[in-house]
Design a protein around this nucleic acid. Sequence first.
RNA 1: GCCGGAGUGGCGGAAUCGGCAGACGCGUCGGUCUCAAACACCGAUGGAGCGUAAGCUUCAUGAGGGUUCGAAUCCCUCCUCCGGCACCA
Length: 835
Amino acid sequence: MTTGTTDTTAATRPRAERFDPSTYEGKWRTRWEADEIDAARDDDPRSKRYVLTMYPYPSGDLHIGHWYAAVGPDIVARLHRMQGDNVMFPMGFDSFGLPAENAAISRNIHPAIWTAANIERMRAQFKTMGAMFDWSREVITSDPSYYRWTQWIFSQFFRAGLAYKAMAPVDWCPKDQVVLAREQVEGSDRHCWRCGTPVVKRDLEQWWLRMTNYSDELLDFSGIDYPEPIRLMQTNWIGRSEGAEIDFPTEADGAEPIRVFTTRPDTLFGATFMVLAPEHPLVAVLTSDDRRADVEAYVASARRETEIERMSTEREKTGVFIGAHAVNPMTNERVPIWIADYVLPGYGTGAIMAVPAHDERDFAFAQKFELPIRYVVAPASGELPTDGAFIEHTADEVLADSGEFTGMAAADAIGAITQQLEDTGLGKRAVTYRQRDWLVSRQRYWGAPIPIVYCAEHGAQAVPDDQLPVLLPTDVDFAPTGVSPLQQHAEWLSSTCPVCDGPARRETDTLDTFIDSSWYFLRYCSPHDSERAWDPEKAALWMPVDLYTGGAEHGVLHLLYFRFFTKALRDLGLLDFDEPTRKLRNQGQILGADHQRMSKSRGNVQAPDELVARYGSDTIRAFLMFIGPWDQGGPWNSSGIEGIHRFLGRVWHLAQPERTDGAAPAGTTAELERALTRATHVAIRDVEADYLAFHFNTAISKLMELTNAIARARDAGLVGTDAYRRSVDTLLLLLAPVAPHVTEELWARRGGTYSIHRQAWPVFDAELAAVDTIELPVQVNGKLRERLVVTPDTPQDEIERMALASEKVQAYLGGKPPAKVIHIAGRLVNIVPAR
RNA sequence: GCCGGAGUGGCGGAAUCGGCAGACGCGUCGGUCUCAAACACCGAUGGAGCGUAAGCUUCAUGAGGGUUCGAAUCCCUCCUCCGGCACCA
């Protein structure tokens, strides 16, 4: 079927210049750079806005995911700039880390050289994006001018008692004699990535930060705008639990009691055995001689497992009796002591009282090993089971078989039993957290050396601030001998004690790279300051960050670490605010076409360069923002990129300077002009709201609708009218944050003053956007049967009268009056027929 | 396993303070232009059924149940996929 109509206007228009972004995109980027249009100035009187996106690891090549992550905040930063703010949008590189070291080992390239080359390549790739990055503030964390201050901050923490040394297990390859990172441990048998030898756990004394000092404060999100899922993840990660610590005396001579943590002290009468983590220090003390061989074998096997395996609630329970007993402080009964891998050394006290009747894991354990089950709480009215079944907790449960507490509501008994334990010195109220302190030692070369020296006399001492940075030596050997390159560097190792000037040995561990990324946002404020980590005046000007964007995969590590750092630095008197950013937004992850995370080893990495060369930067930017909700991401699929390119091409042709040849506009009417102006103002309102809500996909679809409306107006003969010209100008301004190059080029051609990115954002006028009529759906029993076209001010009863008068509605009512009429003003009318 | 997120046409997605399911785009089909093709432009396009037609009916938002005048949206049970789980960053 065809209407046979053709676009006669197009046929008579002069042949337009082809849409070819390569003719102008580079030109404008060169000009913007020369004019420093994107440099944020500290002395700009306009209100500051600090927009930050997570800096990348310089892995070698920018992939399409980097574009996806950066273009979103770039759009918002550009909008804020057009709305009159002094916007800072910096970029840098998180350049310490494992991949550089792996490259050094496998390809014999020095990490510093590999990293520098990658940064250079990626910076050039970033620049083709046309983002408003302020490159004059670039930060590179592996540069001594940066890690000097990373070390300085560690020293401040050390002196304040926030850094301490304690044992921590590492994965160890017994053949290569080297500590392995998680990603270097492969397969379910957990073998070394290089030699295939099964890894073992090894305890090393390492540096920790007392992050748990801040657990409670980190649970407080008041005053900051974080996505709900991130708040939930962080809250659950910190995992605050209230309960009691209870001491169970053991029967061994002189051994200290076993301290347990429980959230349900009210079930104490039901504790019929105890379970220690295999790593618990009392295991060696309490194990009987006849059980020792079994216990040691079990401990060894548990230490080979990952925590994820150990926390699984679906696995068959395992454990061994250690041949010792403790005493239940309430019942004074002897209870056997077991060890089992489901009790973790790092949570609570590393020991539990097992109440099999009322805890599912303990129940499964008791069933398997035929341990006694005693019911001590029951639903208010309920009977206790006699068949040894597990019963769920209920809100109204009361204590049973619990001495003087029998019959008391469980909720009250928690307090009462805890009080009695406190009175008798056997226990106390306690809060525990799932979160642990932060282990910051890494047995690696490519990181910031921990600025500590060890003196035989004075122990661990911070390297004096005026001797920072502790430079990473470059003349090191990366042969996989196992030992860290730093440990073999005799000259570097030897230092002096700042207290006695005697000989001292350097710490050879380096800092976790998450330390580097916990303060980089501060360095951007004064990136070239050689006297201080940051200039307090400039930090006061820019901080806190107004908008921080990055992947949700950082939800519980980086995004907790940088909050912790801010609070710790505040308590050292170095900052006067509590949170690093006011607002956080997450983009989703762009997966490979195979629905897997993009990685070089999978070979599914999508590079942007070829696409940019073919379509231009603007098309790639707009396409990435159009493919779906920004916070969702998804697998890469380039189908549809032509559609976006066509859209920008339509804008290209539509927004060329209008040629009217002095003749009056051919077919215009006041009504058509009003309709175009209305569409333009609806677009201003919706596009702005969508940008600010990070709904870039719907913003672009609304820009397409406006473009289509302008094309219809052109075909109707409105070219040459003020309304038409204003609409086209507005379209370019609204599109500028997404497609900065083509809008700049068109703006210039239309005679606009340079630069479009310095123009004021269009102002929405509600009156111009107002509609004359609305269409109201009429439902019968929830199904659409009729539509009414009314003016917005039609009275409600008039609308209902019209709805009931409709022939179609009447047909469904069968002549009877309706049972009910539901009228949601401005939305719909639903008529419920009589039965 | 635990924590968080997501499942809607052939495809990406739109519509979530419960109110017209499928905006916008891709693809496909038909047409205009062309010697022809490509590009571009115009039109149609969820499935099934009825009707010459305008149109009408009905089904449909991962599966099953529930609440409601009304459910993609709220509740319950389940399935699949993605992210995180403390040494990848």
